[in-house]
């Protein structure tokens, strides 16, 4: 179990990715791009995916919004570089269940991503944390590359 205070959550993980986002910017070339926003607060994510067989050869994002939405997308893109599509879909499903409070989330498996669990305490911010992941799930579905478990 993690017990991050809001300040720790921000300072240790979120702000690092917010200030120095990984894999930010347009992927060239890409196979699919999907833009989604959070109509309630205006967060925006543009997700680029490049496939190689059943792998995600490349994943990047562009966007603007609050630190949680942008850091979560950055962590996602960093983590899923070169991952299998199945693993990506499984991870997205797991993150979504963790954020819905349906699963605890495994520290070892999630690594740094466990920081997102700190957001569960702030219900109105959960949709910020999930924007990138929801966009990923939708992009995988649209590309016909499989749906999450």
């Amino acid at each position: 179990m993690v017990h991050l205070s809001l300040e720790d959550l921000y300072k240790e993980v979120i702000l690092d990715h917010y200030r120095s986002p990984r894999n930010k910017g347009r992927l060239d070339p890409y196979d699919i791009v999907l833009e989604r926003n959070n109509p309630l607060c205006g967060d925006e994510i543009e997700l680029f995916l490049k496939f190689d067989g059943d792998k995600l050869e490349g994943i990047s994002f562009d966007g603007k919004g609050c630190s949680i939405s942008q850091a979560s997308a950055s962590m996602m893109a960093e983590r899923l570089q070169g991952a299998s599509i199945k693993d990506a879909a499984d991870l997205a499903g797991g993150i979504k269940r963790m954020m819905a409070g349906e699963e605890e989330g495994d520290d070892d498996e999630l690594g740094e991503l466990i920081a997102l669990k700190g957001v569960v305490k702030y219900p109105v911010r959960i949709k910020c944390a999930l924007l990138g992941w929801d966009t990923l799930v939708e992009a995988l579905e649209e590309s016909g590359k499989g749906v999450p478990s």
Binding site: L6, L40, C41, S67, V124, R125
Partner: peptide, 20 residues
């Protein structure tokens, strides 16, 4: 960002709106 701001000031008991 205003969303971050609203969450942080809420910890101090201050209710402000953030969004469009």
């Amino acid at each position: 960002h205003p969303h971050d701001m609203a969450t942080i000031v809420d910890q101090e008991g201050v209710c402000i709106r953030a969004g469009h």
